[in-house]
C-alpha cells in the first residue's frame, strides 16, 4: 500500500494523542498526578493538538475535504465513519475534562468521570481506527488479529512515553508512568516483532489462481492492461524492496523501542541524575515518535493488496 504521509502522520499523532489523553484523563481526573495550570494546559493541549493535527492531516488525504462532514453519517457500517464519530465524540468528555481539570483546576467527582470517559472514548477511537485496517480483507497484513491490539498497545506506549516526558519536565522523575512506558515499550516491541513474524510467514490464501479463477499450476502476468502505472498501482501497488524493508525495520526498532527503552531504563535506574533524566525522557519520546513514523510507513509499505496479484507483483 502506498504510504501516504498524511495518513502516517495521522495514525502516529492520534495514537500518541489518544494515549496521552487517556493517561491524563485517568491520572489527572483521579488526582494521581498534580501539576499546576501550565502543566495541565500544556499536557492536555498537547494531547488534543496531536489528535486534532492528526485528524486534520487525514483530511488532506481526501479528494473532497470540504465534504468531510459527510463521513459522520455511516457509523452503522463503516469503521471510518465510526472513527469520525468517535473522534469527535471524544472531544466532548475531553473538553469537559479540560474545563474541570485545567481551567477550574479540579479533580475527582465529575472531572474524574469526564476524565475516565475521555480515556474510554480515546480507547474506542483508537479501536475504530484499528478496525478500519483490520477489517480490510484484501490486505492480509492488516486484516489480522495483530492489528487491533497493536493499535491499542502503540497508543498506550506512545501516550505513556509522552506522559512520562511531560512528568519529567514537571520534575517528577521515576513515576509509575515511566515504568508503564518501559513496560508498554517492551510489549510494543514484542508485539511488533510477533506481527512481523506473523506477516513474514503468511501463506497467502488468495493467489493469482483464485484471483483469476484459473485453477492449478502457475499463473503469470505477461501484459498489464496499460503499460504505464495507474491509480491502482500507485495507491495499492506500492512495494518496498525486502532489503530496504529489513533496514527500515531495524531503524524502526532502534528508534521506537531500543533507544527509548534504553533511555527510560537509564533514567529509571539512576536516580539523582537530575536534568539528565528530563533530557532522556524527552529524547525517548521524540525517538519513539520518530520510530513510530517509520513503523507506520512500513505498516503501509509492507502491506500487500490483492489487486497487486493481478499485476504480477
Amino acid at each position: 500500500m502506498h504510504p501516504a504521509y498524511s495518513v502516517i502522520f495521522f495514525t502516529t499523532a492520534t495514537g500518541a494523542g489518544y494515549g496521552l489523553l487517556a493517561f491524563l484523563g485517568v491520572a489527572g481526573g483521579f488526582g494521581l498526578i498534580e501539576g499546576g495550570f501550565w502543566f495541565r494546559l500544556v499536557s492536555l493541549g498537547l494531547a488534543l493538538a496531536l489528535i486534532s493535527a492528526g485528524l486534520l492531516s487525514s483530511t488532506a488525504h481526501l479528494g473532497r475535504p470540504e465534504r468531510a462532514w459527510r463521513a459522520f453519517s455511516q457509523w452503522r457500517s463503516s469503521w471510518l465513519s465510526r472513527e469520525g464519530v468517535a473522534s469527535v465524540a471524544t472531544f466532548v468528555p475531553a473538553g469537559l475534562f479540560g474545563i474541570g481539570w485545567v481551567l477550574l483546576g479540579k479533580q475527582g467527582g465529575w472531572v474524574a468521570a469526564t476524565g475516565l470517559l475521555s480515556a474510554i472514548a480515546a480507547a474506542v477511537t483508537v479501536c475504530t481506527t484499528a478496525m478500519i485496517y483490520a477489517s480490510l480483507k484484501p490486505i492480509a497484513q492488516w486484516s489480522s488479529k495483530f492489528t487491533l491490539p497493536g493499535y491499542l498497545i502503540f497508543a498506550a506506549m506512545t501516550g505513556s512515553v509522552l506522559f512520562n516526558a511531560l512528568l519529567a519536565l514537571l520534575d517528577e522523575p521515576r513515576t509509575p508512568a515511566m515504568l508503564f512506558a518501559i513496560v508498554s515499550g517492551m510489549v510494543g516491541w514484542g508485539w511488533k516483532s510477533a506481527t512481523w513474524q506473523h506477516n513474514d510467514s503468511l501463506v497467502a490464501t488468495t493467489t493469482l489462481n483464485s484471483a483469476t479463477g484459473l485453477a492449478g499450476g502457475t499463473v503469470r502476468s505477461i501484459e498489464w492492461p496499460h503499460t504505464e502505472e495507474n491509480y491502482l498501482l500507485k495507491e495499492m501497488g506500492f512495494a518496498v524492496a525486502r532489503k530496504h524493508a529489513m533496514k527500515l525495520r531495524v531503524i524502526a526498532q532502534a528508534l521506537a523501542f531500543a533507544a527509548p527503552l534504553f533511555m527510560l531504563a537509564t533514567a529509571f535506574s539512576f536516580s539523582d541524575i537530575g536534568g539528565l533524566a528530563v533530557v532522556l525522557s524527552v529524547a525517548a519520546a521524540l525517538s519513539q515518535l520518530a520510530g513510530m513514523l517509520v513503523e507506520r510507513w512500513l505498516f503501509f509499505a509492507e502491506a500487500k493488496h490483492t489487486v497487486t496479484l493481478y499485476y504480477g507483483r
Binding site: R70, P138, L232, Y310
Partner: peptide, 15 residues
C-alpha cells in the same frame, strides 16, 4: 456524496 477517502478502493480486492 463522495469525499474521496479512497477506502472503498482499499476494500475492493479486485481493483
Amino acid at each position: 456524496k463522495c469525499i474521496g477517502c479512497k477506502l472503498c478502493s482499499w476494500a475492493c480486492p479486485y481493483g
